[in-house]
């Protein structure tokens, strides 16, 4: 069981109009993995993340998170009666969390609240979340019933907040404690009550990671977490990422622009160019691959990712 992949991507393609931003992308992430995804600018790395997290449903292929396939027919619309693919929040609850390349924090919320939003403290008042989830997955009438029960749960949950029941207060304290712990892990405790938009750039990036960890993921996708940092900060961050992996028992997939950094910490690397996977393997293998050298030398020196 322990070696079943947590995230399995099979031949995923994404097309934007005429542009094939990602084609036949395949990958597996298991517990304890630290994998890298590199490629020149516009290679389709972020697009790959978007496909995995349900932001853009893949045109073809399959994405399986924790044994559940998240994409169904991409052609289905978003009407009430035709929900095709799973929505991003559902995918997140299966244990897949991400950060964003262009930081997308909740700018007007405090650092603490940014993390607290991600921590779902949902002790269901009436029907256990697990039960409603199982009913929903079963499909058909059971899906409808499961959704109804879940809705009732949600409304009852609001009542607890309005009446500030002891259970609610206890839970709130737990959530806050957990958020504080994550802030401390990411070295942000001193920023706890500051608004996210007032944090310096490097700390915003770390807050993004803290927030993603708040959702309790099994797999963490990091989109250029060190972008805009100086060399020392980058080094520190990479050490931290490795620690996170061990401490929380994660599998991590990392996009990074600094080739040396990726080569230093990743065990396995996938290289994208124009949406195509041009190489996969250990850092040594990838570095020696003539196609990779060509893709990078084709770019201006120094811009190499």
């Amino acid at each position: 069981m322990s070696d079943a992949p947590l995230l399995e991507v099979k031949n995923v393609s994404i097309r934007f109009g005429g542009l094939k931003a990602l084609s036949n992308f395949s990958l597996e992430v298991r517990k304890g993995d630290l994998k890298g995804l590199i490629g020149p600018n516009g290679a389709g790395k972020t697009t790959a993340f978007n496909a995995l997290t349900g932001v853009y449903p893949p045109t073809e292929g399959a994405v399986v998170v924790g044994g559940v396939q998240i994409n169904r027919k991409a052609s289905e619309g978003q009407g009430l009666f035709s929900r095709g693919a799973m929505r991003p929040f559902e995918i997140n609850r299966l244990g897949l969390a991400r950060t964003f390349q262009n930081i997308r924090l909740f700018k007007q919320l405090s650092a603490l609240d940014n993390v607290r939003v991600a921590i779902i403290a949902r002790t269901a008042p009436l029907f256990s979340a697990e039960r409603t989830y199982r009913m929903k997955v079963a499909g058909g009438f059971s899906k409808f019933a499961g959704r109804t029960l879940e809705t009732i749960n949600n409304y009852l949950d609001w009542w607890r907040a309005f009446f500030r029941t002891p259970g609610f207060l206890r839970e709130e304290a737990e959530v806050t404690a957990r958020a504080d712990e994550l802030l401390q892990v990411m070295g942000l405790s001193h920023r706890r009550d500051e608004l996210a938009r007032n944090l310096p750039y490097g700390e915003q990036r770390r807050l993004e990671i803290a927030r993603a960890l708040g959702t309790g993921p099994k797999v963490l996708l990091l989109d250029e977490p060190a972008a805009g940092m100086n060399t020392r900060e980058k080094g520190d961050l990479m050490v931290l990422i490795r620690e996170l992996k061990d401490r929380f028992g994660l599998g991590i997939l990392l996009i990074e622009h600094d080739m040396k950094l990726v080569m230093g910490i990743c065990e396995q690397i996938t290289v994208l160019d124009h949406g195509e996977t041009i190489a996969t393997g250990t850092p040594a293998e990838v570095r020696a691959d003539p196609k990779v050298i060509e893709a990078y030398l084709g770019e201006a020196p120094g811009a190499a990712a």
Partner: peptide
């Protein structure tokens, strides 16, 4: 909006992320 919120000829436009 209930049945086909993107309209008869519209396409669902995902926000660029």
């Amino acid at each position: 909006l209930l049945a086909k919120p993107e309209g008869l000829f519209g396409r669902v436009q995902a926000e660029k992320v």
